[in-house]
């Protein structure tokens, strides 16, 4: 898994490439934490290159959402392949973390 961060005009975009699993989660948490600490609580997690997510990956997304909201911002997700959407749908978490088609859609309104 590769996690890279890019700064957009109104938000921080965190891109997750590969498998978002137990091994990758600490890196995602660290990226979210560092963005919020640097004063940017508006986050987009780009899942368009994420091939797989497990329960710990979901946990990291929700924890990130909590962190962002507590700091007065939000966490939105964009992209996501078949498996990612299945997992979100199965757990009903897509009602909280509604996947946007593209990063630009997620940035809309910020």
């Amino acid at each position: 898994m590769e996690i890279s961060t890019a700064t957009a005009d109104s938000a921080e975009v965190i891109r997750c490439e590969g498998r978002l699993n137990m091994v990758a989660v600490p890196h995602l948490r660290a990226a979210i934490e560092s963005a919020v600490e640097q004063g940017q609580p508006r986050l987009v997690v780009d899942l368009s290159a994420t091939t797989f997510i497990d329960s710990s990956g979901l946990g990291a997304l929700v924890a990130g959402l909590k962190r962002a909201r507590q700091a007065g911002g939000d966490l939105r997700i964009a992209g996501g392949g078949e498996q990612v959407r299945m997992v979100l749908g199965l757990t009903n978490l897509d009602r909280v973390l509604r996947p946007h088609e593209r990063v630009e859609d997620a940035l809309d309104g910020w």
């Binding site: 329960s55 929700v62 757990t91």
Partner: peptide, 10 residues
């Protein structure tokens, strides 16, 4: 354990 954490966060 993951889901418990998610529920707590929610």
């Amino acid at each position: 354990q993951d889901l418990e954490a998610i529920r707590a966060d929610l």
